[in-house]
């Protein structure tokens, strides 16, 4: 599979569920009989994978909310992992 680029549009795979868990105080990914707790930054990235916003758009949006963070590399790294795990799809 090609590496993820700025104009790719990530979306959460329908067979996975992404939601906020109050009891865990974090975002989680749910799948048959399993759960992955996401770190704060991973949760913020996943939250923006809406199937309409491009990776560039996600990064721009994150910069607005976290202006002092250098996050571009982290976004790409996480999205690659998330796609490999099947949590997201890109088009």
């Amino acid at each position: 599979m090609n590496p993820i680029t700025g104009d790719n549009i990530p979306a959460i795979t329908p067979t996975f569920r992404f939601q906020w868990e109050k009891a865990q105080n974090c975002f989680v990914v749910l799948y048959p009989e399993g759960m992955v707790k996401l770190s704060h930054s991973a949760g913020e990235i996943m939250k923006r994978c809406d199937g309409a916003t491009s990776v560039d758009g996600i990064i721009t949006d994150l910069h607005k909310e976290f202006p002092d963070t250098d996050l571009d590399v982290e976004v790409y790294k996480f999205l690659e992992v998330a796609r490999e795990q099947g949590w997201i799809r890109t088009k």
Binding site: N25, G34, M35, K37, L38
Partner: peptide, 15 residues
């Protein structure tokens, strides 16, 4: 269950 990037709370929870 797997966990990534987050601390497990001290009291066990019936996940």
């Amino acid at each position: 269950m797997n966990k990534a990037g987050s601390e497990q709370s001290k009291l066990p929870q019936p996940l």
